[in-house]
Write a protein that binds this DNA or RNA. Structure first.
Length: 442
RNA sequence: GCGAUCGUAGUUCAACGGUUAGAACGUCGGGUUGUGGUUCCGAAAACGAGGGUUCGAUUCCCUUCGAUCGCCCCA
């Protein structure tokens, strides 16, 4: 058999030890951190009755196209043709898959449906802080509730997600807005359709622009200094109550105001109205929200979402009111790091068995087996190195306990257990060792 | 897609248009030390890749790959 030129070239040059661009290798300590973070996410949403679901990592490209934005699909996703000549896309978000699944079983689901997932997603992007090509996302979606009770629950969950990591409320802020309100606001100054959309996209970037640049670009869209002026003035509003009467009396504005005051009364004081909050996609139908790190180090939204009542209906079935949000693992971890909320994380090995001399190998093996039977995670060092080397390696691995097994210990069935955290070591029976290790788990 | 900055042992850094590109920490082996520490001895280990200029390139130039940050976009 002949090797291809490509394989030969790869072998001559060695394969790269780097992970693919924008993707990460998860060494055990990285994976442990991820598991820890996801574990807390799961705990929070499950407390609210959300259940975990999942979907294929590959979907027909069509599924993503129904949302309309063809440009994004073409430029920002991994899309290719499979061997059966079908166009497929690696999932870049979870919402379409979840909507598809809801639509598919819409008659038999128990509403309200509360689903969550932590999928890995792929987007063909240029990297910058908080943005990679492969990332994980906590997706939380509730189907079938039209009232603002759903919005309030989402805000509570968002807050709890931060609270679960002991974040201070001064370190993050939850911003709220309404797309209906924004549309009405633009309509009130005579903007609709394309130009309204253009203004929305411009407002979305307002924090990146100087006041002069913003005004200039706004003028270019509105073609009227008067209109621009009114918009700029409206954008300075900080409270719903400061809006003009015609705007603050619309249903969405009232709902927004109520949501904010209810959140405050629940102790979530860091919820605020932000009329410049837009979110990139156009499918939001009313309330939108985002949570930000108050440290300017992390400028991207930690999470974001809103109400998109139209999405399930786009699968060709009756529409189902839906609200949801997603939190990215990269930005969330950045937030935790910035505020020093990541503790030292233990790997899953609990005991390292060190063998004093070759003759004790069988005894060590037996001790390890007995511990495993009772559910203790045990690794045995078979290297045959001197005991100090074995101990050093154990320390380096981060394991909490080491168990010394030599021929003498094997005879009396008392082993020396050393707690590497406290430095204490004592001789114990295996039964006693099990209870010590289990106690240490808390 | 565009722009800026940057690529030297595992890591953090050094040097240099010209012999074997240095160090620290880390790693591995060994000695001392009762089992992490101390200390001593020894070893492995790098110019991201490909072109070009040059007598000679790790150094200068180009391309490419990668990293970081920003723009665009951000589901």
């Amino acid at each position: 058999m002949k090797k291809s030129a490509r394989i030969e070239s790869i072998m001559a040059n060695n394969v790269s030890l780097q992970p693919y661009k924008g993707a990460r290798d998860f060494y055990p300590e990285d994976k442990a951190l991820q598991k820890w973070m996801f574990g807390k996410w799961r705990r929070v949403v499950e407390l609210y009755g959300f259940v975990e679901m999942d979907a294929p990592i590959l979907e027909p490209t069509d599924l993503y196209l129904i949302k309309g934005n063809q440009e994004i699909i073409e430029e920002q996703t991994y899309t290719f043709t499979d061997r059966g000549d079908r166009s497929v896309t690696i999932r870049a978000e979870m919402t379409p898959s979840a909507s598809r699944m809801v639509a598919g079983k819409r008659q038999e689901l128990a509403y309200p449906v509360r689903w969550y997932s932590i999928p890995n997603l792929w987007r063909y992007e240029r990297m910058q802080k908080g943005r990679l090509r492969e990332f994980w996302q906590l997706n939380v979606e509730m189907y079938g509730i039209e009232s603002a009770a759903a919005e309030l629950e989402m805000i509570q969950i968002v807050d709890d997600l931060f609270q679960a990591f002991k974040a201070k409320r001064t370190s993050y802020v939850i911003k709220l807005n309404s797309r209906v309100l924004v549309n009405e606001m633009l309509k009130s100054v005579g903007l609709t359709g394309e130009s309204a959309l253009a203004v929305i996209r411009l407002i979305d970037r307002i924090k990146k622009l100087s006041a002069a640049d913003f005004a200039a670009q706004l003028d270019a869209i509105t073609q009227s200094k008067e209109t621009s002026k009114s918009i700029v003035k409206l954008l300075t509003v900080r409270e719903v109550s400061e809006l003009p009467d015609a705007l603050k009396s619309i249903e969405s504005a009232i709902k927004l105001d109520k949501l904010i005051s209810l959140s405050h009364s629940l102790g979530i004081r860091n919820v605020e109205f932000d009329i410049t909050l837009m979110r990139g996609f156009d499918y939001y139908t009313d309330i939108v929200f985002e949570a930000f790190d108050t440290d300017p180090e992390n400028s991207r939204a930690v999470l974001g979402g809103g109400r998109y009542d139209g999405l399930v209906g786009q699968m060709g079935v009756e529409p189902i009111p839906t609200i949801g949000f997603a939190a990215g693992d990269v930005v969330f971890a950045d937030f935790l790091r910035t505020h020093q909320l990541i503790p030292e994380i233990q790997l899953s090995v609990e005991v390292n068995v060190l063998i004093r001399e070759e003759e004790a190998a069988a005894a060590a093996q037996k001790a390890a087996s007995e511990l495993r039977e009772i559910g203790v995670n045990v690794a045995v060092d078979y290297s045959g190195r001197k005991i100090d080397k074995q101990l050093k390696a154990a320390v380096k691995s981060g394991v909490r306990y080491v168990l010394f097994v030599g021929s003498e210990e094997a005879v009396v069935e008392l082993y020396t257990l050393k707690d590497l955290k406290t430095g204490k070591e004592e001789k114990h029976s295996l039964a006693r060792i099990v209870s010590i290790v289990k106690d240490s788990r808390k």
